[in-house]
């Protein structure tokens, strides 16, 4: 067992724990907090089915963003879609056997990683070039993009420069998930990639990446527009009627 193997083993258990606990705590707080008033942004659906469709359009197509700003929409869709493809391709490293559709993505989208990095660079460029967005950007906004570009670039380097030993690596991760320690290949690009991914998992529940659970809980998007037909009362508000 090398030091690196032990280090990454501990790091990934810690990162996974922080990610899971952090997200569960955050999502639980979203669930627990009531929405006392009906505030869907009109024109809003009047039925639950309509709300599901609206949410689907927001999550898959970024509908509101499309109406709002075509550049951000284009780069945003490009980034998220290629991220999705890249993540799917990664299933290969964790599953034995790999699902057929993941293999399909693996085969037909070999360059998704390049698109992802390009889209991130585009989004990052806006933070410098557009005065309004420069004004609102914090260090953490830049660092988040740097982190993702770093993950993408080191991942691409592993594939196209370093020729990583994927078989050993897969054994390491499957070992991690079954609590059966396996050695990690010795490769610098791989170490950097793994380090940054662990960092992403750790910061996820404490950063703006909370937009991922957030998008599902936004009352202006997920409420039905039926306040006259049904009485909507939060528990804390109902107490006012008892006094």
């Amino acid at each position: 067992m090398t030091v690196a193997t032990i280090f990454f083993t501990v790091l990934y258990y810690a990162a996974a724990a922080i990610f899971v606990v952090g997200m569960v705590v955050k999502i639980a707080s979203f669930v627990r907090t009531p929405a006392p008033l009906k505030i869907p942004t009109p024109p809003a659906p009047t039925t639950t089915g309509g709300v599901l469709l609206r949410m689907l359009r927001e999550i898959v197509l970024f509908q509101s963003l499309f109406k709002s700003n075509r550049w951000i929409w284009f780069l945003g869709i490009l980034f998220h879609a290629s991220l999705l493809l890249v993540l799917t391709r990664h299933l290969f490293g964790f599953l034995q056997p790999t699902w057929f559709w993941a293999v399909w993505v693996q085969t037909y989208f070999p360059y998704a990683g390049f698109v992802m990095v390009a889209a991130l660079v585009g989004l990052w460029g806006r933070r410098f070039l557009v005065e309004r967005i420069r004004y609102i950007s914090t260090y953490s906004d830049h660092l988040m993009l740097a982190l993702l570009v770093g993950i993408g670039a080191s991942g691409l380097a592993m594939r196209f420069i370093e020729d990583t030993d994927l078989v050993t690596m897969k054994a390491f991760f499957i070992g991690l998930m079954s609590f059966d320690l396996q050695p990690l290949p010795v490769q610098l690009g791989l170490y950097i990639h793994l380090l940054l991914v662990a960092l992403l998992m750790i910061v996820f529940p404490f950063s703006k990446l909370l937009h991922v659970p957030g998008v599902f809980f936004s009352p202006s998007r997920n409420q039905t527009d039926d306040p006259r037909a049904k009485r909507h009362l939060a528990p804390w508000a109902a107490k006012l009627e008892k006094t």
Binding site: S68, I133, I136, S137, D141, H211
Partner: peptide, 8 residues
Amino acid sequence: DACVHCGA
């Protein structure tokens, strides 16, 4: 929590 500072 959810704002990504996208600027839209």
